[in-house]
């Protein structure tokens, strides 16, 4: 995995997302989810190309139920964009890169 992508947990989530000066896109995922695997390379490319504009982070829902429940994630992959610690946009389901970048563009 790209070193630009941060792995979050229930313990580190709040501090990381609130402290970040750039928006953080959190990928709620799990090992058993086929579509989650497909968007991993897409997110890695975005992390490289949009570096400085957005941070990409991953949260394994299987191991981090608190944060998963708090944001009422009910389907994976779910991507939530946090700005100033607050959720601003939510994308449910996998997307191709072009579409994902377009959906995020107004927030970046």
């Amino acid at each position: 995995m790209s070193e630009r992508i941060t792995t979050l947990s229930d313990a580190t989530f709040d501090e990381h997302v609130k402290a970040s000066e750039t928006p953080v896109l959190v990928d709620f995922w799990a090992e058993w989810c086929g579509p989650c695997k497909l968007i991993s390379p897409v997110l890695e490319e975005i992390a490289e190309e949009q570096s400085g504009k957005v941070q990409i982070a991953k949260l394994n829902i299987d191991e981090n139920l608190d944060v998963t429940r708090r944001y009422e994630v009910m389907s994976i992959p779910t991507l939530i964009l946090f700005k100033d610690g607050e959720p601003r946009a939510r994308i449910v389901g996998a997307r191709g890169k072009a579409q994902l970048v377009q959906e995020l563009s107004e927030y970046l």
Partner: peptide
């Protein structure tokens, strides 16, 4: 194909099976 959460994705319908 492109990633999606339907069977219309790389790998096809088996991507959504266990």
């Amino acid at each position: 194909g492109e990633p999606s959460s339907t069977s219309d994705q790389p790998g096809g319908q088996l991507m959504l099976t266990m």
